[in-house]
Amino acid sequence: MFAADTRAVVVPVTGASQKETHATWKHIAEPVEPFLEAVAQRLEKQVREFDPAIVPYAEYALTGQGKQLRPALVALSANASGTLNDSHVTIAVIIEMVHLATLVHDDVMDEAEIRRGRLTLAANWGNEIAVLFGDCLFAHALKLAASFPTPEICRAVAMATNTVCSGEILQTQQRRNFQFSQPEYFKVLEMKTAELFALSCDLGACLTGAPAVQRNGLRQFGMALGTAYQLYDDCLDLFGSEAAAGKSLGTDLAKGKLTLPILLAWEQATVEEKATLQGNILKWEPGHFAPVIELLRKYKTFAKSVEIINQYLEKSRQTLKVLPESANQAGLIGLTEFLARQTEKLGVCA
């Protein structure tokens, strides 16, 4: 056991059949709600660990919680392979802080003004403060990871953080590069997004003392689910609405990021269409959005993207066969169904 504190965290299990799954976030999160609340409270406590002059930034970043998807993965993976304890709260806080740090930096790079329905940290205090505070979040997460009695946890968090940042660098290098291939694109998705999903599942199982086969299965589940999630997010940026998403959209095109729908259209477009698409993205302005979307619709890139998302979701479900059937395994399957439903909703705009 690698737990810094192995006190049990009591998480009620609903009376649902073990095989019953639900595709709403409420049904998925309800069984682990006490755990998610404990994570939120501990994140708030971390605010006081920063220098008083930095507290306003920390409070703003650490208390504006989203769905807590990664902490939910920690809890569901732990319960599916063993028993939750207080160390899982700590590891969920660590992973969420790394995630929040990446969001702070992403918003600077994308010049995004809205995140989770409110102004980004950069929009409030400027890019310089945002970049430096993102660095502070990374460092604080590693400080917490070092509190575990063995180096394995800290090493895993450090390696995952390195992978995430490396993925962002690779994506930045490939901006406006129309030679960017699909295999290269999927590698970026695995590194920059799926890695933290995989880490959440792996360490959730690790801290219960789960056997290697279950840890590996859960890690592969997180990798496939995380890749599907980023594919969905890339489609959301093109086909979604800011009101529903609660964040700035259209930033990928503005920054020259070639996501799957663009790559799919590029493969099928005529020579003239390729020249127009390339010109629109290389010399981007808001008026270019409509013709780009028109081209994506012509080649049915949303439907093809959904097909690939569903392939990853099915792959993620298959990896869970190494686990015994339980309400918590069903909760993990429910996450895949929830993402599938969210993706379907984009079809209204696409």
Rank of each mutant, 00 (worst) to 15 (best):
M1L: 09
A3C: 14
R7K: 10
A8M: 05
V11R: 06
A16D: 14
T21W: 09
T21V: 15
H22C: 11
H22A: 14
H22R: 15
H22Y: 14
W25S: 01
H27C: 13
I28Y: 10
E30W: 10
P31Y: 12
F35Y: 10
Q46C: 14
P52W: 04
P52A: 06
I54A: 15
V55P: 04
Y57N: 04
A61H: 00
L62Y: 05
T63N: 03
G64P: 02
Q65L: 15
G66D: 01
P71H: 01
L73V: 02
S81D: 03
G82R: 12
D86E: 14
S87A: 08
I94V: 15
I95S: 04
H99S: 03
A101T: 02
D107Y: 10
V108A: 09
R116M: 09
A122Q: 13
A123H: 10
V131W: 13
F133H: 10
A139M: 13
L142V: 14
F148Y: 15
E152H: 12
A156F: 02
V157W: 04
M159F: 13
N162F: 13
L170E: 11
R176C: 13
Q179C: 09
E184L: 03
Y185I: 05
V188K: 06
A194I: 00
A194C: 04
A198W: 02
A198V: 03
S200L: 07
S200V: 06
C206W: 12
V213Y: 10
Q214W: 04
G217M: 08
Q220G: 04
T227D: 01
Q230K: 00
S241K: 13
K247T: 01
L249M: 07
T251Y: 09
L253K: 01
K255Y: 10
P261N: 09
L264D: 00
L264F: 02
W266D: 04
E272S: 12
K274Y: 00
N280D: 11
W284S: 04
G287A: 13
P291A: 07
R297N: 14
Y299I: 04
S305Y: 09
S305P: 03
N310I: 00
S326M: 08
N328H: 15
A330G: 13
L332Q: 05
I333A: 05
I333D: 07
T336C: 13
E337P: 08
A340D: 14
E344R: 12
